[in-house]
Design a protein around this nucleic acid. Structure first.
Length: 320
DNA sequence: CAGGTC
DNA sequence: GCTGG
């Protein structure tokens, strides 16, 4: 654990070696699973995990290189970082299994090695994906950021750079939010979903949502469907990104297109109905096993083309 | 046209 | 069918 100094801020960096199990930080934080991470001019990623502020930095973005990290205001909360990034999950054995099951995709898994599914705070994840329906990643990011800065508590970093970060708002703060205010904050028709879901969540016992981590996938998925604005797709996102349901496969239009093309060609051309949603998700689980959701996340990144800079050309050419 | 839901 | 790139 040596000290490293960046240009315009002094951070007492801690170091973690990713040579044995990779972490592709940019792909992980920019895959459309978490929406509030920002990269500054020095290449440092800033975000929050519950009430903890976090700085992450990967020199040259090398997935098998070193990860530098620190927490704020309380320093050295490694377990918070490790848990969130799921750094104990052995990806190499997964890539081996997936590539054996689906050789056509081996190259893709290798190309984005180190892309991890996060283990997010369940409440932030649920509310973020309430806003993800028929929306763009860029706009979701702005919307969730708006929620945090408007209704969330400040986290003091003690630095001049990001002097403060914002914790995601409490459920009670969201339940009392003004609908017109939310509509203006880019949430549009989703605004009442946020307020009603927050109010419904307040009726539950303390820690109810998080406790879904300890029940089977089907049960957790079913429980989430009772909230307004939550359908099968959003429920799968929360299951996968926050509730440890790694067999959950969110099927959006990108995953649907890829799944039909590769696994269910006889469905080519048909629209995404609940029945075909289930069929594609099952096809993923049959091939990739109990961690099918992780395979899905890499393929989503590739299929949705999130990795290429927002350049106008480079038409959608499929290499797989 | 965008990581769907009511 | 809410909104913006």
């Amino acid at each position: 654990m040596r000290q490293v100094t960046t240009h315009n801020s002094r951070i007492a960096w801690r170091r973690f070696d990713c040579s044995k199990s990779p972490l592709h930080l940019e792909a992980t934080l920019r895959t459309g699973q978490s929406f509030r991470w920002c990269r500054d001019a020095n290449g440092v990623w800033w975000g929050t995990i519950e009430s903890v502020g976090v700085a992450l930095w990967q020199p040259d973005g090398e997935p098998y290189g070193d990860l530098y990290w620190q927490t704020f205001p309380e320093p050295d909360l490694w377990e918070v970082v490790e848990d969130y990034l799921q750094l104990r999950t052995d990806l190499e054995s997964l890539y081996c299994r997936w590539s054996f099951a689906e050789p056509r995709l081996a190259e893709v898994f290798r190309a984005f090695a180190g892309l991890r599914v996060l283990r997010q705070p369940p409440e932030e994840c649920l509310f973020a994906f309430l806003c993800a329906t028929t929306n763009t990643v860029t706009k979701i990011e702005r919307s969730v950021r708006y929620l945090a800065e408007r209704y969330g508590a400040r986290i003091c970093t003690g630095l001049d750079k990001p002097a403060t970060l914002f914790a995601f708002p409490s459920v009670s703060a969201l339940s009392a939010a003004d609908e017109r205010d939310l509509r203006a904050g880019l949430w549009g028709y989703r605004a009442p979903f946020v307020i009603k879901t927050a109010q419904k969540l307040l009726q539950k016992p303390q820690g109810w949502l998080r406790a879904l981590r300890d029940v089977p996938y089907a049960e957790a998925h079913e429980a989430l469907l009772e909230f307004p604005g939550v359908g099968p797709k959003v429920a799968d996102c929360v299951c996968l990104f926050a509730l440890d349901k790694w067999e959950a496969v969110p099927v959006d239009r990108h995953i649907y297109r890829l799944g039909v093309r590769l696994f269910l060609p006889h469905f080519e051309g048909r629209s995404l109905t609940p029945r075909l949603y289930k069929a594609v998700a099952e096809a993923f689980r049959e091939r990739f096993g109990p961690m099918a959701g992780w395979a899905q996340q890499t393929l989503f990144y590739a299929e949705a083309g999130l990795y290429r800079r927002p350049d106008k050309e480079s038409s959608r050419q499929r290499r797989f």
